[in-house]
Design a protein around this nucleic acid. Sequence first.
DNA 1: CGGTTTTGACCGGCGC
DNA 2: GCGCCGGTCAAAACCG
Length: 314
Amino acid sequence: MEEGDKSDPGTEFASDSSWPLGPHDSDNVYFFANNDRGGRRGDDDTTILSEFGWNLRPENDDQNRIGGLDDDASDFTRSFVFPDQNKDTTTGSALQSSDPAVPSGSESKAGEATTSNNPSVSSTSSEDPPEKSTGSGGKPPEIPNKVRKKGQKRIRQPRFAFMTKSEVDHLEDGYRWRKYGQKAVKNSPFPRSYYRCTNSKCTVKKRVERSSDDPTIVITTYEGQHCHHTIGFPRGGIISQEVFAGQLAPPISQFYYPTVHHQLPQENPFFITQTRQTPGEAAGESRVMPQTNAQPPTDEGLLGDIVPPNMRNR
DNA sequence: CGGTTTTGACCGGCGC
DNA sequence: GCGCCGGTCAAAACCG
């Protein structure tokens, strides 16, 4: 394998340091060059709009296999990536996956999703779990449930990705996920894992992989929008997802609200921040602490912090 | 026993 | 048209 790839092939990294994040400490900021990774397809539509960092508890708490979090592995960092679709933002409607155009080649088959989940509509409705579309071994690819005709490209749902500096691959985000696949990533020694929300009505999926450039960084990409609330965390954290209603549902909503480090060189398209958390926190002992200086989430909640105004639906 | 993970096979899109 | 590759399926293995 060669390296050089960054997980999301096609992910676009936009440097938008204009996020309305409050003052942050700028401890460690990591920058990644936006090399083009080799993905063949321009794949994705994910874009990093800005940086933002907060701590999350590694899922591993009790179930993970990867490193422990008690140790120093406790630093997490994240950066967000938004789908191109959203980029437009000019109006804000962005998230509508309606994107007729479905980015070029991006859609491989991402899965079913698509059906619609318009982010803004949170509805559940439509969708049924893609999963079962088929049946037999050869399974009809994806036609999720609905009939997708050939010719019709599958519409990829908006994606939301972020990077987290963590030794734990799969971070706890308040939802329950079932792994449905794992693949070796080209140009990377690390495999990519595919997860689907266990809620049968929810079509949200996520991919988790490690950056080949920096193994300490985990890149998590969410696709779709949850149509339900989080399950809450064992240690009491409950997440509110509403903030994101209408937006992708960033998994995060919860726990730590770390310090966001600011200071991103505009020139660097891709960056991630690092936040450090104490072992205790990592262990989940303390949670959520919006200490992001000031501004507790208002009704815009996290959204207000992480989603640039021009990206909001309204 | 039910839910989750593992893993090889399969499918479809895209580039050449 | 072919091969590559990302993404998904599904049977078997695991685990609590």
